[in-house]
Simulated scan of single mutants.
Amino acid sequence: MVSQINNTPPANAGNQVKKETVEQTNQRQQVTQQKQAAASPQPTAPQAKQDSVSITPQAKQMARLQEKANNSSGIDQEKVEKIKRAIAEGKYQINVEQLAKRIMQFEGEIFRKN
Rank of each mutant, 00 (worst) to 15 (best):
S52F: 15
T32V: 11
I75S: 00
Q29Y: 09
T44I: 15
N70T: 08
I83N: 02
K18Y: 08
A69H: 01
I75V: 08
E89M: 10
E23F: 09
I75L: 02
T21F: 05
A88V: 09
A38W: 07
N71D: 02
G74F: 03
V31T: 11
Q34R: 14
S72T: 06
T44V: 15
K35V: 08
T21G: 00
T32C: 05
Q33F: 12
T56A: 08
A88Q: 12
K49W: 08
P57K: 13
K35E: 11
K82H: 06
V17L: 12
V22R: 06
P57V: 07
N15S: 12
K84A: 11
A59L: 11
Q66M: 10
E20K: 05
K60G: 05
M62D: 13
E23M: 07
T25M: 02
Q50M: 15
T32W: 10
E67S: 08
L65R: 11
V53T: 14
K82T: 05
A45R: 15
T25P: 00
S54Q: 13
Q27T: 04
V31F: 08
A88P: 01
V80C: 02
S40P: 00
M62V: 13
R64L: 11
Q42M: 13
K84D: 06
A88C: 07
T21K: 05
N70S: 03
T21D: 00
A69I: 04
E89T: 06
E81W: 04
E20R: 08
N12I: 04
A37T: 12
Q58A: 14
N71G: 03
K60V: 09
Q36C: 12
A38P: 04
R28H: 01
D76T: 02
T21H: 03
D51E: 15
A13M: 11
A69F: 03
S54G: 05
